[in-house]
Simulated assay, not measured.
Amino acid sequence: MHICHVNLARGFSGGERQTVNLIRQLAERGIHQTLVARPGSRLFDELEGTPLFTGRECRHFLKGHGKPADLWDLVHCHDGKGVYWGLLERFFRKTPYVITRRVDNPLGKGGGTKLAYRMASRVACLSSAIQNAVQDRVPDAKTTVIPSSFSGFPSSEERVSAIRQRFDGKVLVGQVGRLLQHKGYHVTIEAARKLVTSHPEIQFLFIGEGPDEDWLRDLAAGLPNIQFVGFQQDVGNWLAALDVFVFPSLSEGLGSTILEAMQHEVPVIASRAGGIPDLIKNGENGILVEPGDPDTLRVAIETLVVNERQREWLTRRAIQGLAGFSPNTVAERYLSLYKHVLFEFGE
């Protein structure tokens, strides 16, 4: 079996991390793979040395389709532009393709987008919210739900201890990810503003970078309980150092960073938005709050900060439910999907 993965994203965020996770897992199973990505993509660096793997640079979905000698059995499209690359492969070579849809916003109204999703052998949606969004626009799309995996970012006691010593005496509440408005950092800032006097022991850490950083820094100006620590290569250590993880997104396909926090045994407070309720059952393995509401976020943070037993309960239940989101489990589900599609296509 030869799988061609296509990810033409310009940056490197959650979807690209999931692409790397899957390719590595499939390589361990002896699957021959090609990756089509933009020149200079970090994806190539992350996958350097992966066995049975070939990289191919491509600037546009109209290009990079190669020669007949490069035939693969199936194309897996991991981002929006890659969807059209897969559609062209279907027309030119009669090659089946599958799509992973990672966002819960409505599909584009253009005829090309509808055709691409209708022609796909399967559309793997990260959550039920995404599946509903796809089916609303393309009712005859063949959809299934396959979630993201956690990445298993490592941590070391020494490094975690050093981070905690840097904020000695503080209760660390952190948010990790791209600094974008829809991720709800501004909601966290307002919650922090309401807690700055009543709970001076709480220190909020924003771990990441992004295009809305200047706007968010302006919103947080004068708040001593907020610190922007930037992108951190050893994000596992920073997650493990937290006492509480917050994820108040206004919209979210799934929220794989929640899984990373759970894996490091950090209790999670997240918004009831998009696919997040697929991961969190309120009061069982985390706390859900209303999106865009800093008051309910503040109350949830206060509750966990003062209640160590509840934090332990939530993290214990969260760990118990992680098996279904391991890189191994998710890779097996995709491998089964590939085999099923190829069987159908060969009939």
Rank of each mutant, 00 (worst) to 15 (best):
A220S: 12
R29D: 08
L22W: 06
V244C: 04
I130G: 01
F12M: 09
P39L: 04
G255D: 02
A129F: 04
D136I: 11
P200N: 04
Q227D: 08
V123S: 02
A141F: 00
G169L: 07
G286T: 07
G40P: 12
P267D: 09
C77T: 05
G210L: 05
S41D: 08
V289R: 09
Q165C: 05
L250C: 07
V306W: 03
E201A: 06
K183T: 03
R59L: 09
G108A: 07
S251M: 12
G49N: 12
G15A: 04
A120V: 03
K339E: 10
G275H: 01
F345G: 09
V176D: 04
A69L: 10
N282T: 12
F345I: 06
L43H: 08
P68R: 15
T34F: 12
F231K: 08
C77Q: 03
E308P: 10
L22F: 08
K81R: 15
A124E: 03
R101N: 01
L26W: 09
L259Q: 00
V299F: 06
R309Q: 13
G346F: 07
R10I: 06
R24Q: 11
Q175M: 15
A162W: 01
L259D: 00
P211V: 08
P68S: 14
K194C: 09
I269L: 05
A318P: 02
Q203S: 05
A191W: 01
E209K: 14
W72D: 15
T296E: 10
N105Y: 15
L172Q: 02
Q320H: 11
Q175E: 13
S151G: 11
G40R: 10
M119A: 12
H60G: 10
E260N: 04
S13G: 13
V266F: 00
L179P: 06
H264E: 01
A300Q: 05
R42P: 13
T19L: 01
I146C: 11
L71H: 14
S13D: 14
V229D: 02
S148T: 09
P68G: 12
K339D: 11
S161C: 08
Q320E: 14
R17N: 10
R56Y: 13
N225T: 11
I31S: 01
Q320G: 13
P68I: 09
G177T: 04
V6A: 07
V244G: 02
G80P: 06
H2S: 08
V138I: 10
L180N: 11
G174R: 00
H2A: 06
P211C: 07
